[in-house]
Design a protein around this nucleic acid. Sequence first.
DNA 1: CCAACGCCGGGAAAATTTCACGACGTTGCA
DNA 2: TGCAACGTCGTGAAATTTTCCCGGCGTTGG
Lengths: 220, 220
Amino acid sequence: MSAGDATILLVDDHSVVREGYRSVLEKQPGLRVVAEASDGAEAYRLYKSEAPDLVIMDLSMPGIGGIEAVRRIRQRDKGAKILVFTMHQNAGFAVQAIRAGARGYVTKTSPPETLVRAVMDVLAGRIAISPDIDHELALSRLAGESSAADVLTPREFEVLRLLLAERTTDEIAETLHVSPKTVANLHSLIKDKLGVGSDIELVRLALRQGLLTQVDLGEA
Amino acid sequence: MSAGDATILLVDDHSVVREGYRSVLEKQPGLRVVAEASDGAEAYRLYKSEAPDLVIMDLSMPGIGGIEAVRRIRQRDKGAKILVFTMHQNAGFAVQAIRAGARGYVTKTSPPETLVRAVMDVLAGRIAISPDIDHELALSRLAGESSAADVLTPREFEVLRLLLAERTTDEIAETLHVSPKTVANLHSLIKDKLGVGSDIELVRLALRQGLLTQVDLGEA
DNA sequence: CCAACGCCGGGAAAATTTCACGACGTTGCA
DNA sequence: TGCAACGTCGTGAAATTTTCCCGGCGTTGG
């Protein structure tokens, strides 16, 4: 590994999965994994201390999610290059990730070459989207449907995700380090923007749009 | 790799994740990954042709899922050793997997050592469950896993169904010819009986128990 | 007969949701 | 450059809902 290698921070809550990234990436000359994080908060800390050239970020993680981590890192460093690498083959997530400041979005079903190519693209300053998501985006574009991702700001989207995943307003407030009141306000605003009157409708809408998949809630 | 190595079939729809398993496993002497599959059907075909000593199986995959693949393989070969390795930190999944014939259940959040130990255990004929799932199972055992249909009276169950059907309290009150107040009281009582704190949890519980299926979501 | 339970709702306290509003920083554009 | 628009965070107060406690009714079953 030469001194000119591009340095990479891996973020994923599954250690064996990180092992996979690392194995694929280190076969490439010029790339070097310098740190690994298992949640959003740790990712942010390590970004500050390591200042890597690239962050490869999973989305679904405990505590603050990937979107929020992207947002925070970009808030600190406008030039940060972040490539989202996730299982969610969902245009809404891609839109949110890019809006939050990610420079690429690749699904885990992609072959390793696609990941490597995306890494190179993002390092070179280009935006990288994997073909399946390109297709998803094209479809949703054609359908002209307004999804949750379209009307919600990144922050609202993140709160929605936590509402669907965590339990109480107070817990969410704590993980986001804001007042419970703010979360309640956002919660209300989200329902308003999405045009639903109750939390039950909210969950149903989220399900329809793939924000909450059947597997997310632990099928019996 | 000696002739006496234990042969392994990896099943996961994310190629980079398979790379992770492989990397971890092949550091262990005596283990050899001989095949990889990306869905349940392929796993079954490869099991027949390769007859590996062990299958490491993900659960969430396109087409026939991991549970079904486990069932089919075990149906064909009663002695098949299958270790489920999944992101689902959920006792219900674990129970299903073991019932289907898996000999182990390990979550992807586990450190690599846990996976390796589980592999060795299953190869040695033991059942392997990762500690977090042990804990989940213990909890659900202690809690006595209250089923919705079980603990609710017919009336309460009916109200729950209507609540999930995207109706307001007032509408439900009208269809049932009772006061909105009664519906609100029942709504509260239902949440209490099911041990959930919010409507969002209520919907998630209902989904888990099959009270509300994806197709019921209808249109906006 | 009486105890237990499901069912129905009123009243009041407690909690949440909603609305109006302001502060602050950033973005975008003329 | 300056300024308008927007996102984010939070407060306070009103409106609404949720929750708790209560009693009444009918049915069931010992």
